[in-house]
Design a protein around this nucleic acid. Structure first.
Lengths: 142, 142
DNA sequence: CTAGTTGCAAAAGATTTGCAGACGT
DNA sequence: ACGTCTGCAAATCTTTTGCAACTAG
């Protein structure tokens, strides 16, 4: 599967083992959002040779290259100081984080997007970027 | 103005000099959003005796008490790792950060709020909290 | 061959914590 | 007086950087 190789080349990055590993991991992980440390541990326990510093460096390069997006969620207790990364598949979307399970759900809403543009415009600005995260909890029937 | 004193008491906190100073500063600052370090520096240069650790401790207590809100904005370059705090005046609002000037603008939009609730509900969740930040730039006229 | 990469260890930056002394009530 | 605070310094934690060895093209 040389697909990842060309993604890297296109980004102007040499095709190295660590980069391929990280890219592959991000593509295959079911949770889709991982911290640098989770990536590091995951690769290590998979028997790979890699340094944590390399993981950070590669993620930054990937982010600059637009291969990956970085998020700063605040976990349940408000005690997260750790960034997490997800593959950038192109389509923008926002996030919902379940406070009970930590599960991250993606969503996209045309209405909200539009309204945001309008609000910015009303203030004389244009949106460069935006981040919407909803911290939620399952509705308990009762 | 004993107003601040009772706010502290109500929060179950002793009325001490550092706490009063920080509360007052947050009430009076025009920018409304300050980092722990900015607060520390501001008080120090105002001739106050205070430790940075105390600023952090007090802000955390204020946050738990609901007197203050903590935000993790990402400044222009994406290079912010510093939290900033604002007085919690009760009314919820979202933020727009100007990438050129760093200015923080607050706004509230009923439509977006409603839509968020709906989306969460559609997924079987209820919103505990949410954070919407738009990183914007002044519209440049041709 | 040569510039880009890597791993390690050390550095940095933000925030937290242990502790002895000081202070509010 | 008592338990709560405070300031300082040291500790933590995440992320970055210096450097010498290594590797892709």
């Amino acid at each position: 599967m040389p697909e990842e190789r060309s993604e890297l080349r296109k980004a102007g990055l040499k095709v190295t083992h660590p980069r391929l590993q990280i890219l592959k991991l991000l593509e295959e992980t079911p949770q889709k959002h991982m911290t640098a440390d989770e990536i590091y541990r995951s690769l290590m326990s998979g028997g790979e040779e890699i340094g944590l510093a390399t993981v950070y460096r590669v993620l930054n390069q990937f982010e600059s290259a637009g291969l990956v997006r970085k998020h700063l969620f605040t976990d349940a207790g408000g005690t997260s100081t750790q960034a997490c990364y997800e593959l950038d598949e192109g389509g923008h979307h926002d996030h919902m984080v379940c406070e009970d399970t930590g599960k991250v759900i993606e969503f996209y809403d045309e209405q909200i997007e539009k309204r945001q543009e309008e609000i910015a415009r009303e203030h004389g600005y244009e949106i460069v970027n935006h981040s919407l995260v909803m911290y939620v909890r399952p509705i308990k029937k009762a």
